[in-house]
Amino acid sequence: MSEAVAIPRPLPSRHGLAGEFYAWCAKGELRFQRCSGCGTWRHVPREMCAECGSVAWAWERSSGRGRIYTWTVVARALHPGFAADAPYAPVVVEMEEGVRLLGRMVDCPPAELAIAMPVEVVFVAVAPEVTLPRFRRT
């Protein structure tokens, strides 16, 4: 899937830990950091584990499944790059691994959103080198 965008939208950095996270997305894999010291999953990516202090970690693959934790419906875009999308619904999904991931639904009208709705990740290319995780109902 890809989306034509008339006005430039903000895109994530392609460098550092964010670059690695999104590189996995571009390969169709959702991966989060998991601490090699205590096994804690974490998102957003960070340099060290705030639970045990370890700086050892690996990108481990998520099941891609989770439930909606909260959401908003943006009726009026506050950035011109998203004006054509409104209304759209950023959702926070609590993944099976316990971390929460922000994304948007690809198949759910905002009026049907509900907390605890089961969803799974899909990937959408929004720019030639940038793929974002999004969600669909399961």
Partner: peptide, 12 residues
Amino acid sequence: ARDYYLPHGLTA
């Protein structure tokens, strides 16, 4: 915010 919020249209 730049890397994980704004790209999804969560901008303000």
